[in-house]
């Protein structure tokens, strides 16, 4: 579990804070999506949580340990997969992994077994003799995944990890996240691909200009923004349109009726079909939908799509 408490990061006095008083929690057994535009502060949040950079103020607690003051204990519980993995170019995967494993106090045999398992898992076993500088970006990402979880951390941070991966890689990462969540680990997924986040995240944190705008739970993802209802009514007429207008703006496109800018909440939407049926209208289709995360995201941060 990771708790970010009032974290602020200022890189330069001349520039706006990269993060401003951020409060965020990553819970065990949960995938937290982190979305935001470029420069919103996603990577800064992750790098701060990994102990790569220091918060200017506030603190980051990893399973109860302060990442700044108790770096060694805290970092043991964090695995960070960076967006652009960067390793010693002349190193080969096996010795480098053994070196990394050494920081977790793993015994040689245990480390060897674990490393080989992980490299097999990320499909890099056939490339053990290749220097990392000769790995493709996708291979480096796979290696980064393996080396980040070599210490079996309780919290794993995926920073734009899905970028640059082939479909098989995307599927692998997604399944890995599910597997880690099943093991009770806390997962953070930062991504520009909002649909991916929407699909896997239990909660989604939206940040913009270094500030946390909103945290959405999974059940809220389906009812984002203003409700929109798609209807097909056999005996639709002006009276029916007037009735529907009580709940929002009615648009009619041949047989499809769309109720926009609704004034009713998602959990009260059932009153609409109830009233239509009571008024003698025959409903062939009733489909209440919220906005997509992407639409909602842009609406929230005030950017026109």
């Amino acid at each position: 579990m990771i708790e970010i408490q009032g974290a602020t990061k200022i890189y330069s006095r001349k520039a706006q804070p990269a993060l401003s008083n951020l409060d965020l929690e990553m819970n065990n057994g949960e995938i937290l999506g982190l979305v935001g535009l470029n420069g919103a502060g996603k990577t800064t949040t992750i790098r701060m949580t990994s102990g790569i950079i220091f918060p200017t103020s506030g603190k980051v607690m990893v399973d109860g340990f302060d990442i700044v003051k108790q770096k060694v204990k805290a970092a043991r519980n964090v695995g960070w997969i960076p967006e652009f993995p960067n390793f010693e170019p002349n190193a080969k995967p096996l010795p480098l992994m053994k070196y990394f494993a050494g920081y977790y106090g793993m015994k040689s045999e245990e480390a060897n077994k674990k490393i080989m398992d992980l490299l097999e898992k990320v499909s890099l076993k056939p490339y053990l003799n290749r220097k990392l500088r000769n790995y493709s970006q996708g291979m480096k990402k796979r290696f980064a995944i393996a080396e980040s979880i070599v210490g079996d951390p309780q919290n794993v941070l995926f920073d734009e990890t899905l970028n640059g991966l082939d479909p098989e890689g995307v599927l692998f990462v997604r399944n890995l996240m599910f597997e880690l969540r099943k093991q009770g680990k806390a997962i953070l997924l930062s991504s520009h691909i909002l649909s991916e986040v929407e699909d896997v995240a239990d909660r989604v944190a939206i940040i913009d200009h270094g500030k946390l705008i909103k945290v959405l739970k999974r059940n809220e993802l389906k009812s984002l923004g203003k409700l929109r209802v798609h209807l097909q009514i056999e005996n639709f007429n002006d009276q029916c349109k007037a009735l529907l207008s009580e709940y929002g703006e009615v648009e009619v496109d041949e047989s499809e009726i769309v109720l926009r800018d609704t004034t009713i909440q998602y959990d009260q939407v059932s009153v609409i079909p109830e009233k239509l049926v009571n008024s003698g209208y025959r409903i062939r289709k009733f489909d209440p939908v919220g906005e997509s995360l992407e639409d909602y995201f842009f609406e929230l941060i005030g950017v026109k799509k």
Partner: peptide, 17 residues
């Protein structure tokens, strides 16, 4: 290693700077 970011792959380990 430090200026290119390679060192970050080590700093993130359980080791003090």
């Amino acid at each position: 290693d430090r200026t290119s970011g390679v060192l970050e792959s080590v700093i993130k380990r359980p080791v003090s700077r």
